[in-house]
């Protein structure tokens, strides 16, 4: 019963309800930020922001394109972070076979700084961050304690416009295709970002790089994008084995 998010950026108004709802639900402290010439703040994901709305603007002929990208862990179907972490500390990263949630446990504290960096570099979306005080590796939890009790993730619950959606994978894939077909009328190049590989699927109406450099699976230390995708599209075999062994 894998869960999936559909993040339809064509409906996002960057109200940041999701960013704050995430912070509030997880009771994460605030960073001491500065205005740096952008509305995107904090400037990047960090140990206290598992969710961050990224702002990217450009002029397109006579019109302006202002793209909003509510960034978060993609909960990869076959998560490279887990493979990487397993090499250091078994059980530091686990995957819930029920929901598909990729979870960073307390055991991530046992990972060295270098190991954390390796896990982060293994992530094709540059998501994991090391907690400056506890040393734990942290990121979006899919609001696991909520979704296993029938509640929506905090970010999805807060979203006013239907940009954030959550549900059964098949349901979300169907919704993604339906929405994609609808927005293509206005944006012929609209696309779904890595839909076969991840549990958090973005619907993009513009070139992914006009949202964020890691909007789609990016270059990692060992793999380029093609290699990464090839690896991700492999059957669920590895993660199933991992779960059995766990």
């Amino acid at each position: 019963m894998a869960k999936t998010f559909l993040i339809d950026t064509s409906r996002c108004t960057a109200c940041r309800g999701c960013q704050i709802a995430c912070k509030e639900w997880n009771e994460l402290p605030a960073n001491d930020t500065r205005q740096w010439g952008s509305h995107q703040n904090p400037p990047d994901l960090n140990a206290y922001n598992y969710k961050l709305v990224r702002f990217n603007e450009r002029r397109d002929g006579d019109t302006v394109r202002w793209n909003f990208f509510p960034d978060q862990c993609r909960h990869c179907i076959d998560p490279p972070c887990k493979h990487e972490a397993d090499a250091y500390v078994e059980g530091a990263v686990i995957q819930d076979p029920e929901t598909g949630a990729v979870l960073f446990t307390e055991k991530t504290r046992q990972l060295s700084e270098e190991a954390c960096e390796a896990v982060r570099e293994a992530c094709p979306y540059n998501i994991p961050r090391r907690h400056p005080v506890t040393g734990a590796l942290v990121k979006c939890t899919m609001c696991h304690e909520r979704i296993t009790r029938g509640m929506l993730p905090a970010c999805v619950k807060a979203c006013p416009t239907g940009a954030m959606n959550f549900g059964e994978r098949e349901e979300m894939l169907a919704l993604a295709e339906k929405r994609l077909a609808a927005v293509k009328a206005e944006f012929p190049n609209a696309m779904l970002a890595d839909p076969d590989s991840v549990s958090v699927i973005y619907l993009l109406t513009d070139d992914p790089f006009n949202y964020h450099q890691n909007a789609v699976a990016g270059v990692t230390r060992d793999l380029d994008r093609q290699q990464f995708l090839a690896r991700l599209t492999a059957p669920l075999r590895r993660s199933a084995r991992a779960a059995m062994q766990g």
């Binding site: 109200c15 940041r16 960013q19 704050i20 709802a21 509030e24 619950k157 807060a158 979203c159 006013p160």
Partner: peptide
């Protein structure tokens, strides 16, 4: 059920 940044910050 929806809330914006301000509404989500009540806690």
């Amino acid at each position: 059920g929806a809330l914006c940044a301000k509404g989500a910050s009540m806690l």
